[in-house]
Design a protein around this nucleic acid. Structure first.
Length: 623
DNA sequence: GCCGTTTTCGGCCCGACTGTTTTCAGTCG
């Protein structure tokens, strides 16, 4: 077992102990142990072998014994016994907002509730409100939480759906008889959440053997829980994680139409069909053919065959309707069809994953990350990034072990040494994810922030402030000249928690007026600021930073979802700060992130022809 | 369960908020 696997087990023990009502400090000891393990820079096997594990601060005799057992055998008796002593439904109940271990324990002890279903019934029967410490409002909130959870349960994060779909598409393409295979639907459109998966395969429909082989392969994939339909052209399965998937096998000449149709969105398809009708054509998943009553010269069948023969790709399908190719991410029925008009093509050249040269806002084990500073830099280097920005939490985020001034200064010092050592090709920008306090002031003073290359300002508490207060709070932070960018604008967690109430339009206005960047937090759970806002905001000069908010090396890959969302927001690489090269300042001075910001901001302003629009100029070259 | 120039027991991180209370417990980040 690796140190991070062992840390996971220690954390699970902490959760189980909480549900049992154990001593909170004992619980924290397990959490600390997990953290300590993750920050360990030496090889765990060697530390154990040398007998020095118990000398590590935060790991005493008991944890040494447990970690050793896990490392050697991959199992821990104490953990397994603990697991069987707690009903699994209790752990699941922790996912309901406003329900923590203490209340779950009370519900279990007093009403014998050990599942979400049982809790829903008890709430509906009014039993929960009668318990001491609970009341009508709590009961109502719990019911709503359960209802939300059920509604959310029908959708899945893009990231998770993509992980399931990727190998299936790759596998389908390798099968004999398959000419093309693609995932369609909201997955292909890069939507933040996905309802179900759609796979479109082109194959010879008359070759029933080949079709049977494809269907057999699809239904026999590991993780398939049940086959819900198996017909001539459509097969449906459900995976163990609840995700549904449809496989459609179509003749090759129909592939482009089926792919377009099942990619959607519904609104986009409606508009496309209207456009076709205006041209005397009828568009469907089967093809593009003369609309009824319009096929006067040729017979309908002949015209049909002729049109189909001409169209073998989506590009040709769009062209047949006088449109440029519309990237799937843009097909939301907003303005994309008007913009794609071939005679006046206004479609943007969308940013691509390969345009990124680095990313800001990443955590390390100094706060709540699981990879050390060196591990994060090495991972960025492996990705070929020119630079990586480190932004650990600030001191008010106690729960995330936020850095105080002294620890931040130590980290900056460490980053400077790494940069000058030449150990890594990737340059490291020193930053912070600085808490925006309840009144809009920042968690660090100006002097502390001045030593940094960049500052991400984020809200991490008092989520329930009213819209007016929250908006004023965030704008006050944006107006602080030390702030480079605003972190996760609404704090939402997709499928789990609504964001805090904030007037996005006012925040965007303030960011533009102050030359502050807004983050596109690329964590698959956040994708915040929402893609629906980017198009308009960027057109008015707002600069975006695609930030992975990585808490371990593997999370750097989250920029992939960030790019999806940026594309859905019509963004080109010019709109995104981390597509810019690491700046080499004149006179050989050390590059800083602020120069990058200044360059890009000025570039954006120049492009729009109003260079004076940004009242803040950030031209500092070095500290 | 861990720690220690207050060292083998007693303390361990905290502020805001909500709903339940009538001074506080639980949840969240």
């Amino acid at each position: 077992m690796t140190k991070n696997d062992i840390a996971d087990v220690l954390r699970e023990i902490a959760v189980l102990l909480e549900l049992k009502g154990e001593n909170p400090f004992k619980i924290r000891a397990y959490e600390n142990g997990a953290r300590t393990l993750e920050s360990l820079t030496d090889d765990l096997g060697e530390v154990i072998a040398s007998g020095k594990l118990s000398e590590v601060k935060g790991i005493g005799e008991a944890l040494t014994q447990k970690i050793t057992e896990l490392h050697k055998t991959g199992r821990l008796r104490f953990h397994e016994e603990l697991r069987t002593s707690v009903a699994p439904g209790l752990v699941e109940m922790l996912e309901i907002p406003n329900l923590g271990p203490k209340k779950i324990k009370a519900l279990h002890d007093k009403l014998g509730i050990s599942s979400i279903a049982a809790l829903a019934k008890a709430c509906a029967d009014g039993l929960v409100a009668e318990l001491p410490g609970f009341g009508e409002k709590t009961q109502q909130k719990l019911l709503e939480g359960i209802k939300h959870r059920e509604a959310y349960g029908r959708r899945h994060l893009w990231w998770n759906a993509h992980a399931v779909a990727g190998p299936i598409v790759a596998g389908l393409r390798k099968l004999r008889g398959v000419k093309h295979a693609e995932a369609a639907g909201s997955l292909r459109r890069g939507l933040e959440t996905v309802g179900d998966l759609d796979f479109i395969v082109a194959a010879d429909a008359k070759d029933s053997k080949a079709v049977g082989r494809i269907v057999d392969w699809f239904t026999a994939r590991p993780g398939v829980f049940e086959v819900t339909a198996r017909g001539e052209t459509k097969t449906s399965v459900r995976y163990e994680n609840g995700l549904q998937a449809d496989l459609r096998i179509v003749p090759e000449e129909q592939f482009a139409f089926a792919l377009h149709h099942f990619t959607g969105s519904k609104d986009h398809n409606v508009q496309m069909r209207q456009r076709a009708l205006a041209r005397g054509l009828s568009l469907s998943e089967w093809g593009l053919e003369p609309a009824d009553g319009e096929g006067t010269v040729k017979t309908k069948a002949a015209a049909h065959a002729e049109t189909r023969a001409k169209i073998t790709s989506e590009t040709e399908l769009f062209a047949a309707l006088g449109l440029a190719f519309i990237e799937p991410e843009l097909r939301e029925g907003l303005d994309e069809i008007e913009a794609a008009e071939l005679t006046n093509n206004r479609l943007p050249h969308l940013v691509e994953h390969t345009d990124l040269r680095g990313a800001f806002h990443n955590h390390t084990t100094a706060s709540d990350g699981r990879s050390t500073l060196e591990e994060m830099i090495a991972a960025a280097q492996t990705l070929g990034w020119e630079y990586i920005g480190i932004a650990d939490h600030s001191k008010s985020s106690h729960q995330a072990r936020g850095l105080d001034e002294r620890r931040l200064a130590d980290q900056v010092d460490c980053i400077q040494k790494i940069n000058t050592s030449g150990r890594f090709k990737t340059h490291v920008f020193a930053g912070t994810e600085c808490d925006i306090l309840t009144d809009g002031s920042l968690d660090f003073d100006d002097l502390t922030l001045a030593q940094l290359d960049f500052v991400v300002a984020s809200v991490h508490n008092a989520f329930s402030q009213g819209e007016e207060q929250m908006t004023a709070r965030i704008i006050r932070a944006i107006e602080n000249p030390r702030v480079t960018m605003l972190g996760h604008m609404t704090g939402r967690l997709l499928l789990r928690r609504e964001g805090y109430r904030v007037n996005a339009a006012k925040v965007i206005d303030a960011a533009i007026a102050n030359g502050v960047i807004i983050e596109l937090n690329a964590s698959p759970w956040r994708l915040d600021m929402d893609w629906r806002l980017w198009h308009g905001a960027a057109a008015r000069g707002l600069l975006c930073s695609i930030n992975p908010d990585a808490h371990e090396t593997g999370h750097l890959a989250f920029v992939r979802t960030g790019v999806n969302i940026a594309r859905k927001g019509w963004l080109s690489k010019q709109n995104i700060i981390n597509t810019k090269p690491s700046p080499k300042c004149a006179r050989g001075l050390k590059p800083t992130a602020r120069d990058l910001m200044a360059q890009a901001t000025m570039g954006e302003a120049a492009r729009r022809g109003d260079a004076g629009a940004h009242r803040k100029t950030k031209t500092r070259c070095s500290r």
